[in-house]
Design a protein around this nucleic acid. Structure first.
Lengths: 197, 197
DNA sequence: TGAATAAGTGCAATGACTACACTTTCGCAG
DNA sequence: CTGCGAAAGTGTAGTCATTGCACTTATTCA
């Protein structure tokens, strides 16, 4: 499962966790820009140097995962139920992510987290980069699903648009309806471009 | 036209230009990350403090304009010839921008500039932000053209997608064909969403 | 002419991040 | 068990962008 081989890796994961926890705590309390890396390191009782051995930069302290996302995204396309179109599958996947958020939304702590990310330019940009980093992988999966060449522009476009749709949907008061409308646009455009398939 | 009222403003514009010129020169010669703000200031024979009085940050040294773009973008939608769809108008506008680039492409200096922007993360992000800053204005223009409420999600989506299409098209070996395919997708989706209009 | 204002300067500081030369701690082969 | 090499952690000192401050200089305009 998740168990590490030895004590060494356990301790490593431990300090990493301590850093992420301390960071979130302080960021939520004082605001991202009002907290220095030094503060985080001190709170986790490690040196600043160590902090940067675990996280490539200050923003990364906030986003722990990022790798599973790509796998899930590709899987959503590749393993979609038969008869379901690619855009439909993507809409459902993204909306599911939203729903998961909604579950947590009861926690005011989580709401504060989202607000912080949206209100801090550095974090907003980082989150955006995080998602668009998976564009190539998603485009490849779409191309495979559509039987198109790997570098087909329409597949790349659909990938990009779907990923952009996420943030568009997120800031809308009624995410589900927004998702329907935005993906209806993509759906129509997509199927029209693939009459032969 | 462009003439400044007095000598003061003339000198101001002069040092600003000197800074932009020196920056471009050095950046192209050594690479963006290998040049410090100090180097640029020295080359333009001003202090670092002065540099930051003219430009809000290092990246801004590279992009002088940005304001006319929004006006042109909105105009492309608002003043499109009758019978032409919004996505079509946008495709033409963006492709025109590409074509202007193509004119300059003969200049190896300009090609080097584009390569630098694409290869430097800080500049790529800045350029991207520059374009997406106009999303709201574009969305409003589209909504007006479509007779939809100002905050219609589909209009916002089309605006965002069109702006994203730009970078998608730019990196494609055959921009014109890429633009056709990408905007065909948007066109179909858009008209399908507006059968009543 | 002289006072208000804007451009420009130098200095010192902050805050993120890196390079370096260490010490400590594990893991593992002999 | 022993001891060696790798990995985790440390502290210091530095770079680089960016800002605040107190200051000089040039331009404008009443």
């Amino acid at each position: 499962m998740t168990e590490a081989t030895g004590r060494r890796e356990r301790k490593k994961a431990q300090t990493r966790q301590a850093l992420a926890d301390a960071a979130l705590e302080l960021f939520l309390e004082r605001g991202y820009d009002q907290v220095g890396v030094k503060d985080v390191a001190d709170a986790a009782d490690v040196s600043v140097t160590t902090l940067f051995k675990h996280f490539p930069g200050k923003e990364a302290l906030v986003f722990d995962q990022d790798d599973d996302l790509e796998a899930a995204l590709v899987a959503a396309v590749r393993e979609r139920p038969p008869g379901r179109s690619v855009p439909e599958a993507l809409r459902e996947h993204l909306l599911l992510g939203q729903t998961r958020f909604a579950v947590h939304s009861a926690d005011p702590r989580f709401a504060a987290f989202l607000r912080m990310v949206q209100d801090t330019p550095a974090l907003r940009d980082y989150a955006h980069r995080m998602w668009t980093r998976h564009e190539a992988a998603l485009a490849a999966a779409i191309a495979e699903a559509a039987g198109a060449p790997r570098d087909d522009v329409r597949c790349a476009a659909l990938a990009r648009f779907a990923l952009e749709a996420r943030s568009l949907i997120q800031r809308h008061p009624d995410p589900a309806r927004a998702a329907d409308e935005v993906f209806a646009l993509l759906e129509h455009g997509w199927t029209a471009s693939h009459q032969g398939t």
